[in-house]
């Protein structure tokens, strides 16, 4: 009954979706144009359409600054931080969901608190800690915290996932004499694969986009990730928007791929609302 009334919302959905995709479409288009085209003439000039598509823009864009280097740096940081996040947060989530230990309720309150911590304001005090550990100008501040389950959100997500695993699996494993680690690694972790997918995808995207941290912690431009590299690019050559757009498009490809791969895990709760508890 309600479904029938809501049927006509599809027009709104298509309109908004097209509007939302336009900036990305424009960036791809602009990255393939000669630079003058972006300054004069119609926005979408059909008269000169056939001589357009300057693929050379991309070759030129990656040679002006070591963009490939920046991208590889980002890939390395993202991979290292994401693996750490999944492993350490899964372990913590398992401990909060399935093990009984002294101080657990208080610690879980701290997890919830850390989920709402103002991260951009904490960054200055954290800078001090990394400074006294002599971690500045290395990738340690960008990677090590994530091996220590610093993301309260991921811990929380894993805890919920582990809580929903039926008790019988745990009991069976315990009867076989499984240790905590065997229970975690061989029994529980394979059962929360959707949560692993969701946490991996979301944290990978967050690590890929990280900007404030790398901006403060790194000073040698050879070590910059693409986010800081892009900022360097736009400070260097404000007059070449087509090349800037080429680098921007390149930097958006990895998050796009991640989302497409993990789409099913990410939208699981939306597609099957009854399953999640």
């Amino acid at each position: 009954m309600i479904d029938r009334e809501a049927r006509y919302t599809w027009i709104g959905r298509w309109l908004i979706a097209l509007l939302m995709l336009l900036p990305v479409v424009w960036a791809v288009w602009a990255s393939l144009q000669p630079v003058e085209r972006l300054f004069v003439g119609a926005v979408f000039d059909e008269a000169n359409a056939e001589d357009a598509w300057q693929w050379d823009n991309y070759r030129e864009a990656v040679t002006r600054l070591p963009v490939i280097r920046f991208l590889l740096n980002s890939v390395f940081i993202t991979l290292a931080a994401t693996i750490g996040t999944v492993l350490s947060c899964a372990m913590a989530g398992f401990a909060f969901a399935r093990l009984r230990w002294w101080g657990r309720p208080v610690c879980f309150g701290l997890v919830l608190l850390s989920m709402s911590a103002p991260v951009n304001l904490l960054i200055l005090p954290r800078f001090l800690v990394f400074d006294s550990l002599e971690w500045l100008n290395t990738y340690k501040p960008l990677i090590m915290p994530h091996w220590l389950a610093v993301s309260g959100f991921s811990v929380f997500l894993f805890r919920q996932a582990f809580k929903s695993v039926p008790r019988a699996f745990e009991d069976a494993a315990r009867l076989e004499g499984a240790t905590h680690w065997q229970l975690f690694w061989n029994v529980m972790l394979p059962m929360v694969r959707p949560a692993v997918g969701a946490v991996a995808a979301l944290s990978a995207v967050v690590h890929w986009h990280a900007f404030f941290g790398p901006l403060l912690y790194l000073s040698d431009y050879q070590t910059f990730p693409i986010s800081v590299g892009l900022r360097m690019y736009c400070k260097m050559q404000g007059a070449w928007p087509n090349l800037l757009m080429a680098v921007a498009v390149l930097s958006m490809i990895p998050p796009l791929v991640i989302v497409l791969i993990a789409q099913r895990h990410l939208m699981r709760s939306v597609e099957e609302p009854t399953i999640t508890t």
């Binding site: 309600i2 479904d3 809501a6 049927r7 919302t9 599809w10 959905r13 908004i16 979706a17 939302m20 995709l21 900036p23 990305v24 424009w26 960036a27 995207v205 890929w208 986009h209 900007f211 986010s227 800081v228 892009l230 900022r231 736009c234 800037l244 757009m245 680098v247 921007a248 498009v249 930097s251 958006m252 998050p255 796009l256 991640i258 989302v259 789409q263 099913r264 990410l266 939208m267 939306v270 597609e271």
Partner: peptide, 27 residues
Amino acid sequence: RHARRRGWWATIFYLPHLLSGVATWLI
């Protein structure tokens, strides 16, 4: 909410959130 391919639409609308970083501010 009532769309037939709900997950697909949710992904489309969520996508900009996941894409946004330095690149999209500059765009």
